[in-house]
Computed example of a mutant assay.
Amino acid sequence: MVDARLPAEWLGSIRIDNLSDRAFRILAGALMWCNGQGTDGAIPARYTKYLHPDGEDQSAFDELQAAGIWRRTDDGYILPGWSEDLHQSTAEEVERYRDGARRRQKAYRDRQRAAAHSTEIPDAVTRDVTMNVGTGQLKSLKRASAYATGDDSRDVTHNAPSPHCAKHPGGTRQPCGACARARAAFEAGPRPIPSRAWDCNLDGHKLVADGTCAVCTHRPGKASVA
């Protein structure tokens, strides 16, 4: 889009001030039409009807010609001194500006595409990363944990509910307080808290959801010796 200019020097200009309002409006319309069409001030006669909402006005045309703002040609009118006197952009200047704007826009889009392409992760890199994630990595992390032990199978069997203590995993006929507590915990519910010979006198009761102790015969509201 090309804008027409109304130079500030026209304020107070005798030549412009002497124009009637209708003639000045036709002049403004002529500037806008020539800039939009890129004619450098030439207005064919068939288009003068677009310069004012009421159409052509020959007296206003003659007024503009008398003021030296435009002159008649074989095919219409022309505004002399289009770039020097009227300070309007020529069609060549407008085309150079548009061409430069197109080049700048293309360069900007090329930079955007190059930046987007540089941030993409190649498939080979992604494949290498995922290939390095496996049981070996997880195993090393598990060994680094503070809760890891040297014998995983022993931990699994220990965590399973059992009516016997850790010292007598198969049971014993001899009196064993730890086995008694393990039996009580085993009978208290399906999910006793795992322990190795918990002593409730020292460590306190290990309560489950219903308030019972997982390792002794303690029950809520009932006095018992742990």
Rank of each mutant, 00 (worst) to 15 (best):
M1D: 04
P7F: 07
P7Q: 02
G12M: 05
I16E: 01
S20Y: 03
D21V: 12
D21F: 06
A23T: 13
R25W: 05
A30R: 00
L31Q: 03
W33L: 12
G36E: 09
G38E: 01
D40C: 05
A42G: 11
R46E: 14
Y50K: 07
H52G: 13
G55V: 05
G55A: 06
Q58F: 14
Q58S: 13
F61A: 10
Q65Y: 08
A66V: 13
R71V: 13
R71M: 10
G76M: 03
Y77L: 02
Y77F: 12
I78G: 02
S83K: 08
E84V: 15
Q88T: 04
E92T: 08
V94C: 14
V94Q: 08
E95L: 15
E95S: 15
Y97K: 09
D99S: 14
D99F: 07
A101N: 05
R102S: 14
R109M: 11
D110V: 14
R111G: 11
A116R: 14
E120R: 12
A124Y: 09
T130I: 14
Q137M: 12
L138S: 09
S140Q: 08
L141T: 01
K142E: 10
A146R: 10
A148Q: 02
S153P: 06
T157P: 02
T157F: 11
H158D: 12
N159K: 07
A160Y: 03
K167P: 00
K167W: 04
P169H: 06
P169V: 08
G170W: 01
T172F: 09
Q174C: 07
A178H: 14
F186C: 07
R191D: 15
P192I: 04
I193Y: 07
R196V: 15
D199Y: 10
N201K: 09
N201D: 13
K206L: 15
K206M: 15
K206T: 14
V208C: 04
D210P: 05
C216A: 06
R219E: 15
G221P: 02
K222W: 11
A223Y: 06
V225N: 03
A226Q: 03
